[in-house]
Amino acid sequence: MNIQLTRIQFFIIIFTLFTGFVYISIQTPIISHGKRSAWLIFIASSIFIYLLLVFYEKTYKYFILGKVTTMIYHLYWLFHLSFAVAYSMYIVSTWISPYTPKIALLFLFLLPSLYASLSRAETAVNVGIVFGIFIFFFIFFVLNAYEDFEFRNLLPIGESGWKDWMWGSLYSLNAYRNAECYLILRKFVMKDEKISGMPLFIFIFSLFAMFLFSILSVMLYFSMEEFNLISEPILYLLHAQEVTFVKRLDLIFVFIWVFITIITLINYILVVRLVHFQKVRKFAKSRIVIYHLFIFVIAYFIAKFESIQMIRQYYWIPFLVFGLLLPILIISWNKIRGRTIFDSSK
């Protein structure tokens, strides 16, 4: 399977992959660990990520997945996707549909993804466009809370100790946990599209601005102690908003968020397909169906408050292992051997 991406398409996919699953939940761990300087910690971590992606941009051609590494990534992705689905299901069932059985919700999440994954690759590539429309709604809704913002919540930054900084940055990095997708998708971008330099900076900056906006607005809105209670602050903030025509903005946002989750799922499975079907071409359709069945089963079993809470606690690990260490290992190993993706594809 092979696709050609334009620069915009590439960025939209990455944007969706980065923000899709984590956007409503990322703020709580960062703030509850980073305390009042959480926003500063996040800025620092984002600078690190920018440097990392600049590095990846220079060395992506050395990122070749061998048999073992492919296997590792496949296992990680399977778990990651199942967890994302389970978590989304959990959100939906706490916020709007408490009595709908898990199986029905799983079907609602996985059927569109299955449909899109069985369609042409262009569909999965382009589906992220809708994301853009929702961002405007989202920013507009959140800014509604402007009157209740308390700017003194952002200071003093000196209160956070080094432990707060460490954990805060680990969880901040988690916002960019899908960095390996950048490496994988990068080679599908058309040859004549320029990415390094300004375009990459603008892209990372917009991603960072989206995250920072959410972190700042919830920090301004809630007092620090509330973050120990609230796990989806963005939703909770919207829950507390009331505009003249709609009383519960969070319902609309959950509605939008279901949309976004499914789109992210579709994009993620596209990445999985790209890696998996690079050499294997047989039984493509039935393999995709089986993959969805796997997600279905795993998500069904971990969609419980206890397991989700536990997994979330350890979810700073994936970035370190799969987004940072493993790619750097692979890149340096191949650099020493002098192999690039351009040789291996021949």
Partner: peptide, 14 residues
């Protein structure tokens, strides 16, 4: 003060 804005104050020490 709504339930939420009151909570933001109730949970704040200052």
């Amino acid at each position: 003060r709504t339930i939420q804005t009151a909570a933001a104050i109730l949970y704040s020490d200052g």
